[in-house]
Design a protein around this nucleic acid. Sequence first.
DNA 1: TTGAACCCTGACGTGACGTGAGGGTCAAGA
DNA 2: TCTTGACCCTCACGTCACGTCAGGGTTCAA
Lengths: 246, 246
Amino acid sequence: MAQSSPEARYRTQAFAQLAGVTVRTLHHYDRLGLLRAKRSSNGYRLYHAGDLERLERISALKFLGVPLAHIGRILDGRPASLSEELAAQRRALREKRRLLDIALSAIEEAEAGILDGKPTAVLLRRIIQAITMQDNTGWMMQYYSPAAQAKIAERAASFTAEMQAEISQAWRQYFRDLNALEREGDQDGKRAAELAQRHRELIAAFTGDDPEIESGLAALYRDRANWPTEMQEKLAEYENPDVQTT
Amino acid sequence: MAQSSPEARYRTQAFAQLAGVTVRTLHHYDRLGLLRAKRSSNGYRLYHAGDLERLERISALKFLGVPLAHIGRILDGRPASLSEELAAQRRALREKRRLLDIALSAIEEAEAGILDGKPTAVLLRRIIQAITMQDNTGWMMQYYSPAAQAKIAERAASFTAEMQAEISQAWRQYFRDLNALEREGDQDGKRAAELAQRHRELIAAFTGDDPEIESGLAALYRDRANWPTEMQEKLAEYENPDVQTT
DNA sequence: TTGAACCCTGACGTGACGTGAGGGTCAAGA
DNA sequence: TCTTGACCCTCACGTCACGTCAGGGTTCAA
């Protein structure tokens, strides 16, 4: 094993190998001021043992997804910024993992179709369905009776991609307008009334006046206290009394 | 609801809203040749219903993490490329999720320390330990007796960051040299003998000649058939008979 | 006819480096 | 002494999927 003295100085490559990073990374951190190296008389960078500790902290925070600019503030600035950054990263990573799990299950779903020799178009359709179902509505399906689920799937299959896109566009637009209304306030209640009308139309277009689908939707809304967290947040918008039309 | 005819043409913004992407994204895909738009006489892009289907496929594959250049080949090229791409993405996403889980548990571990009012330095040390433990050796610890685990932790705590870095650098270098040896072959067996010697030294440095640690290490190696998949692959390098010194 | 709301094409910015290009430094061997 | 090779340095452009202006044209309703 190599012997180390407390005054050991390393040049760039040696220090990079010691820490398990590349030379270019050290150049980068040096220029950013994140890990400044001393210079020898010929201009070479010189690192010592104390720099290693700082570099390990940088690498650890980078592993958590913290941007380099924030890492600088954490290591040099006020200590509270660490806990704020950790909380922010935890939320961001949770969301990333949620999307990642959706992607993985979509892939696995599609790969099951490959074994049957399905053509590319069918596999792509499976992937799209797996993503949209899991991402938005998958957890909702448990509220519908099997008969209602079958009807929903049948209606969805009978739509063209264009029609489906128009429907989800209308929902997106509805939520955008609802958000805008909450931000800007409503002077005369006309905009709220118009939004409520659009909401009724969207609901009607979804149920297609089918009583089985309507009863499932009602059950879904009654149990809103148990929705997933990210839906709970969107639910707050519904709590506007002008829009409680369900 | 908006009515749609089969010959509906959309200009850029309308089509972007319909599909839930930005105008800039459509420009980008147009320039890449990924989704080419027709042009009206005044140079405006015109999209129609068939483009929407292609765009949805593009968005779905992008969601899975497939780079745009590959998406073009999948949608235009031979159909087998889809299944290859899916398999590659599945591996990549699994690895991402593994690292993401490590990061998340490291954050939660550190946040538990925040409640106790620990200073930043202690929290950072916890994060680094959580990462390195989970990433490399966490699953190994089950093979060691509680007494051996305590001794390992004690020895680790007594090392400076510099010494620990030198040890892991030596291991990294060992694996690099081992890989190089396998690629390039060994003419006279001298390099293999030298590597085997380094391996013995690294093992001895780890156990510190402690019999409890040594017996745990032996148990770990005996049970190598049950190691995690990513370690199984690294194990293949050990199967070189020159290096079976454990 | 004027303004709002569209449309277009460049072209630079983002983040964390990778990857050369072009040139200097230094110790060991011929 | 010269050369070779292994280091070192500083630009500066490339990556990836767009975001974000800047500068200028088109269309439609009031």
